[in-house]
């Protein structure tokens, strides 16, 4: 009985762990192996080079430029998405007429694939016939080179990511808001609290766990963003949208330098690991 009950949990875990071992952990580990080796031009075999690939990355100005672009992108896109998502969720959580319809409508972008999103926004942002330039023209404002000027392109990527990202994160906020018991809010109202006070002292603290989750998940998701850059700008113009994930892709698949790409992946993986551990740490301390 006791041996049996000790084994059963592992039996339940076995299929998932086995699958992940073969199709997740092993290939991830293989990229580490790759990052410590270089392809020999003569024999086409892997030669151990230690940390050389990592050293080369750290000396590469294009890598640092992509780090810079990624940092600027993250600093802009994450607060924009989270603030808008929280606003959206608060509005969707009200009891006003037509709210169910509104909820259904604003959620739609979540269901749209990133490929379709990219194509649609490519159309909208087109310099000549795009919707946004059409609107600007009717307001007799000058046309904007949304995807073709270094000063604009990153903002266009931010716009696209926001369109797709905000409803998704709002969904998590809305779920969190609906989990807050009505009685707590009512009690605060009876005590004379105004809306701002209720939000500041009741809603926000009760949303802490969700907020932290969204903060981390959003940061990681945007950090790994690649599809719009791939289809719309290819990292350009003048590397202005060369996010680190796209730079990794370029190394590996455009320049065929898999070892350097693998080393970059591990630099990014360590960053992601730190963010996740930070989340786990903060959440645990709260409990």
């Amino acid at each position: 009985m006791s041996i049996h009950s000790k084994i059963v949990p592992y039996l339940f875990l076995l299929p998932a762990v086995l699958l992940l071992l073969i199709f997740n952990l092993w290939p991830t580990a293989a990229t580490l192996h790759q990052s410590l080796h270089a392809q020999s031009f003569i024999s086409n075999k892997l030669v151990f080079v230690g940390l050389e690939n990592f050293e080369r990355i750290l000396k590469d100005p294009i890598f640092w430029k992509s780090v810079q672009v990624t940092l600027i992108f993250s600093i802009l896109v994450n607060p924009i998405q989270i603030v808008l998502a929280l606003m959206l969720a608060l509005l969707a959580n009200q009891r006003v007429r037509g709210i169910a319809l509104f909820r259904s409508i604003y959620l739609l972008p979540v269901a749209v694939s990133i490929n379709v999103t990219t194509v649609v926004w490519g159309l909208m942002l087109d310099s000549d016939s795009g919707l946004i330039n059409g609107i600007l023209a009717t307001l007799s404002l000058p046309k904007q080179p949304f995807l073709t000027a270094p000063s604009h392109a990153l903002w266009s990527i931010i716009l696209l990511a926001t369109w797709k990202g905000v409803p998704l994160w709002a969904l998590f906020f809305l779920a969190g808001l609906q989990g807050i018991p009505e009685s707590v809010i009512e009690a605060a109202k009876i005590d004379g609290a105004n809306r701002r006070q209720i939000f500041r002292h009741i809603t926000l603290p009760l949303l802490r766990a969700v907020l932290l989750f969204v903060l981390v998940a959003d940061t990681v998701a945007n950090f790994l963003l690649i599809a719009p850059v791939y289809s719309l700008t290819q990292g350009g113009p003048q590397l202005s949208t060369n996010l680190i994930m796209f730079e990794t892709y370029r190394r590996g698949f455009v320049y065929n330098d898999l070892s350097t790409a693998a080393a970059m992946l591990w630099v990014m993986l360590i960053f992601v690991l730190l963010v996740v551990l930070f989340q786990a740490f903060v959440l645990r301390r709260r409990d």
Partner: peptide
């Protein structure tokens, strides 16, 4: 069961890694 915490940490980290980050070794596999 013993080892649960370690597994959870692994799942947490793994859930943030998109598959195509290790697409080449996976292809070989």
């Amino acid at each position: 069961p013993p080892g649960s915490d370690l597994l959870m940490l692994y799942f947490l980290v793994a859930s943030t890694i998109p598959v195509w980050m290790y697409i080449v070794p996976l292809f070989v596999q």
